[in-house]
Amino acid sequence: MDPIAVRRDVSKRVIPPHPVLSALVVLGFVGLLFVVETIDTLTGGSLEDDGVLPRDFSEWDNVIWYPLIHGDWGHLIGNAGPLLVLGFLSSSGGIKQFFQVTVVIWLSSALGVWVFAREASHIGASGLVFGYLAFLLVRGIFARSALQILISAVVFAIYGYALWGVLPGQPGVSWEGHLFGAIGGILAAWGVARDNRAGNLTK
C-alpha cells in the first residue's frame, strides 16, 4: 500500500487507533484530578494556593500544576465531562500525538496566563478543555477531512457555548486561561498538519 496514502489516512482519522488505550489514558488523567481534589478537600483547600500567579517569579513552577487543581467539586465536575469526550477525540492521531497536543495546550494556557492575566490565582483544567475544543474544530480544516469537519461541527453544537468563556466579564472565571488554551489548541492543530505534510514530502 502507498505509504503516502497511509499517512493521509492517519491524518484524517476520527477514532483513535487504540480506542481502549486512549479511553484508559483520558480516564486516568481525569481520575488523577479527582484524587487531587480529594487531597485538597481533606487538607482544607491547601492546594488552591498553587495556581498560576501572573508575573510572580517566586512560584513560577505553578504553571506545571495549575490544571490539576480546582476550586471545588462543582468546578472539577464541570470540567470532567468535556475532558473525557474532547480528550478521547483529540487522541485520534495516537497516544504519542495526544501527549504532544496536550503539552502544547497546557504550556500555552499556563504561560499565557503567567504573562498576560489579571492578578489572581488561576486554577483548573478548563484551559485544556478549550484547547481540545479548538484543536478539534481546526484540525479537520487543516487535514481537509470532511468527516473530521462533521465531527467538529457536532462537537461545536454540544460544547460551542463554552467559547463564550474566552471573553472577559465573568467573575471568578479565568477567561485568560481559556483563551490561551484555545490558542494552544490551534497551534497544536497547525503543528500536527505541518508534521503530516512533512511526512508526506519525505516518503
Rank of each mutant, 00 (worst) to 15 (best):
D2Q: 07
P3K: 12
I4F: 07
D9G: 14
D9E: 15
D9Y: 04
V10L: 08
V10D: 08
V10Y: 02
V10I: 12
S11Q: 14
S11R: 12
V14I: 15
I15Y: 05
P16I: 03
V20I: 15
V20R: 05
S22C: 01
S22T: 11
L24N: 07
V25C: 02
V30K: 04
V30E: 07
G31M: 09
L32V: 14
L33R: 04
L33N: 10
V35C: 13
V35F: 09
V36N: 05
E37P: 02
I39Y: 14
I39Q: 11
T41P: 02
T41E: 07
L42D: 05
T43D: 09
G44F: 04
G45W: 01
G45L: 11
G45C: 10
S46Y: 09
S46N: 06
D49R: 12
G51T: 03
G51S: 06
V52D: 03
S58D: 08
S58V: 04
E59C: 13
D61P: 00
N62H: 13
V63N: 00
I64E: 02
W65A: 10
W65F: 12
I69W: 03
I69M: 00
D72F: 08
G74F: 03
H75E: 04
G81L: 15
G81I: 15
G81F: 15
P82T: 09
V85C: 00
V85S: 01
L86P: 00
F88S: 12
L89D: 10
S90P: 00
S91Y: 06
S91M: 12
S92G: 07
G94Q: 09
G94N: 12
I95W: 08
K96R: 15
K96Y: 13
Q100R: 12
V101P: 08
T102F: 14
T102K: 03
V104R: 01
L107D: 04
S108W: 01
S109T: 12
S109K: 10
S109L: 05
L111G: 00
G112Q: 07
G112N: 00
F116W: 12
A120W: 10
A125P: 08
G127V: 04
L128I: 13
L128T: 07
F130V: 04
F130H: 14
F135S: 09
L136Q: 06
V138Y: 06
V138I: 13
R139H: 05
L150D: 00
L150Q: 10
I151F: 09
I151G: 02
I151E: 03
A157E: 02
I158N: 00
G160S: 06
G160I: 07
Y161P: 10
L163M: 13
L163T: 13
W164S: 09
G165A: 07
G165I: 03
Q170A: 14
V173N: 02
V173T: 02
S174Y: 06
W175A: 09
E176M: 13
G177C: 06
G177N: 03
H178F: 12
L179Y: 05
G181S: 08
A182M: 07
G184R: 00
G185D: 05
A188Y: 07
G191H: 11
G191F: 11
V192M: 11
A193T: 05
R194W: 14
R194M: 15
D195N: 14
D195I: 12
R197Y: 07
A198N: 07
G199D: 12
N200A: 13
L201V: 01
T202Y: 13
T202F: 15
